[in-house]
Amino acid sequence: MKKSIVLLVVVLALAIATVAGAQDYKIGYACNNYNDTFQTYIMGYADEYAKENGVELVLADGRDDEMKQMSDIENFIADGVDALIVIPVNPQGVEPIIDKAADAGIPLIFVNRNPFIDSETAEELEIPEGVYYVGSNEVDAGNFQAEYVVEQLGEDAKCGYVVLMGQLSNTATPGRTGGNKEIFDQYPGYEFLAEQTGNWQRDQAVTIMENWITAYGDNLCAVMANNDEMALGAVEALETAGMKDDVIVAGVDLIDDAIVAIDEGRLDFSAKQDGQGQGEGAVKTAVAVLNGEEVEKWTVIPFIPVSAENVADFK
């Protein structure tokens, strides 16, 4: 009994010791989910940039649970942060977050996942006062993937493609998927076979891909994955089935695994989501707003197409 209490106190004390000293600005960074590999890259770049520039970044893991993220944001505000950077768990349910930031009178910067795209029509919505978005134009990523396929196979090729989608609640999903279709629809030889959500996860993608291989077999010639994790899952399934050489697989993000895979010729293409640009951009935007500078409501960080030709530049 006493021992357990002592243990608890020690744990708390250790925790206190890790708190860094005060700096000029304190910014709360509410990540959606630490299990989302790419998001941790963005967070890492943001943290690095913040440290170099004398900004204190407080981090929280939303654990893919909007209620947990809501609590994280409330806790940040209670902790007196000067600004909020949020990668929303649910980009379509950010109203309460915007309200909370407005009540606290602090700027709010959404990063990477764009809440200001209508999930049905993909139209851009108005961004409210004091709120900013730093991220890429998701449609570009989809376009780049499809253009690469057309470039490789030719405009007149006959080819069936499938799309591994991210979480449906995420606005990147319709953006990227729509970007794929926008290009393919221009070429009558390219046939849309199926789309399904792998929730950004590699293991789910493996299962889905295995089923598609069974269903479409030789008709399959391109896999458009909304992110690299799922693209690599597809690669694994295709390699197991001995079909990798016949199918082009494209991902998005250019995570470390993807660089290696492209270098080894396993993965064909990835649209590099500029994590560094986004992470640094988020902190830059926050600091600029706090300093009273004029800031773009939407800072676009462009995607970069990466294939075997130029992968060496990113190692």
């Binding site: 243990l7 744990v11 708390l12 925790a15 206190i16 890790t18 708190v19 860094a20 990540c31 630490y34 407080v58 981090l59 929280a60 893991d61 947990k68 609590s71 994280d72 806790n75 940040f76 209670a78 902790d79």
Partner: peptide, 20 residues
């Protein structure tokens, strides 16, 4: 959860502490 976030404890540690 509230206390650990306010103290700025690493989120990974938060999960470990919760488990304990």
């Amino acid at each position: 959860r509230n206390g650990m976030t306010i103290l700025g404890i690493d989120a990974y540690w938060q999960q470990i502490v919760e488990g304990f």
